[in-house]
Design a protein around this nucleic acid. Sequence first.
DNA 1: TTCCTTATTGCAACTAGTTGCATCAAGGAA
DNA 2: TTCCTTGATGCAACTAGTTGCAATAAGGAA
Lengths: 171, 171
Amino acid sequence: MEHPLIRDLRQAGYRLTPQREAVIAVLGETHAHLTAPEILRRAQEHIPHLNKSAVYRALDVLTHLSLVNPIDLGKGEIQYELNCLPHHHHLVCQQCGKITDVGESVFGELEKILRTQYGFAPFLYHFAIFGICRACQPKVRRTRVSLVLARCAQIEQPLARRATRKRARPR
Amino acid sequence: MEHPLIRDLRQAGYRLTPQREAVIAVLGETHAHLTAPEILRRAQEHIPHLNKSAVYRALDVLTHLSLVNPIDLGKGEIQYELNCLPHHHHLVCQQCGKITDVGESVFGELEKILRTQYGFAPFLYHFAIFGICRACQPKVRRTRVSLVLARCAQIEQPLARRATRKRARPR
DNA sequence: TTCCTTATTGCAACTAGTTGCATCAAGGAA
DNA sequence: TTCCTTGATGCAACTAGTTGCAATAAGGAA
Ligand SMILES: [Mn+2]
Ligand SMILES: [Mn+2]
Ligand SMILES: [Zn+2]
Ligand SMILES: [Zn+2]
C-alpha cells in the first residue's frame, strides 16, 4: 500500500515523480534534521543525476503541505524533517548552544489566545526558541543593552563563528 | 552624544568601524524590514565601495547582541530590523498572505512556562507565526493530511511562487 | 493501450550568503 | 602623539538557493 505522505501529495493534486519519491524516502529513512544539500546527496543514491532544483522544489511543496518542517536552529543552515506527531520544539541556548527538547503543550495558551482573540489558526509544528539556559544565566553579564532590558539579559560574547576564526589564526 | 546602539556595541567589546556605523545608520533611518542586499545597497550610499561581507558580518554581530532582529516572513528572504520596544510579532496567513501584527503579550504564558518549568530565559523579540486567518478558514479544504490532523487544517493550494510560474506561461 | 494536457524536471545563469587569508585600522597604552 | 595588538575588512573563491524556459513525463481520458 501507499506511503501516507504520497497519498497526501496526490490528494493535494500534485504528481508523484521519482524525484519527489526519492526526497520523501530520504526523509523517511531518518528522524534526524537534514539540510537540503544533505538530502540532495542522499537522494542521488536513488537517482544519480537528480538535480538540486528538483530537491528544493520538492521540499517547498512538502513544506507547504505541512508534510515537512523546515528548521532553523541558528546554525546558519535550514534543516528539514518529516512533520510527525507528537510535535516537539527546541530551546536553544545562545550562550552554550545546548538544545533542550520540549513538548507541544508549551504553546497551549498561545494557541488559545490566537484562536479566540484573533480567529487565527496557527501551525505550531516545530519551533526553535532562542534564549539562555539555566546553567548559563549566571555567566551572562548583566549588561544593559539599549532598549532591550532586564527581562532579556544580553549576550556579550562574540559569535561562535567569529570566535572560531579568531582561535584558528592567532597570528 | 553617542547613538545607544554604538554604545552597546562598544560595551560588548566590539570596535566601531565606518562599515558598522553605515549599517546601523541604514537600519535607523527606517522602521521597515530590510533584506541584506537592500541594506548593502543603501549603506553603499554612505560608503561607496562597502563590501557585502562586512554587511553580513555586521548584521551577525548586531543580531547576536540582540540589537537587530532577523525576520523570516516566509517570503524566502530574511529581513532585518532594529530591535525596538515594545516588541511585536506577525501572524502570517499561508492561504492569502495577510499579515497581522500582534503585541508581545501573546507570549506571556509561554515565557512564564519556560522560565518556571525549564529555567530557560527566552528571547521573544520578533516572531512570525504561520497559520490560517479567520477569513480563509472556510476556504481551506478539510483534507486529512497524514499525521497532521483536524487541529491543523491543511493547505491544499500550490505555492505562491509555483502558481506564479504557472500563470506566467500557460503554453 | 494510446493520446493529450499540463505539471514537473533539467539546465544554465543568476543572486544570496560564507569563508580563509592577507592587509588594514580601531582604539588602548605609553 | 605614536606605537602596538588584534579585531575587522576586502577580496576571491566558494557553497547555497532561485528562476525562466524548453523538454519531458505523470496521470487522466478515451
Ligand atoms: Mn526537531
Ligand atoms: Mn516586524
Ligand atoms: Zn547555555
Ligand atoms: Zn488568509
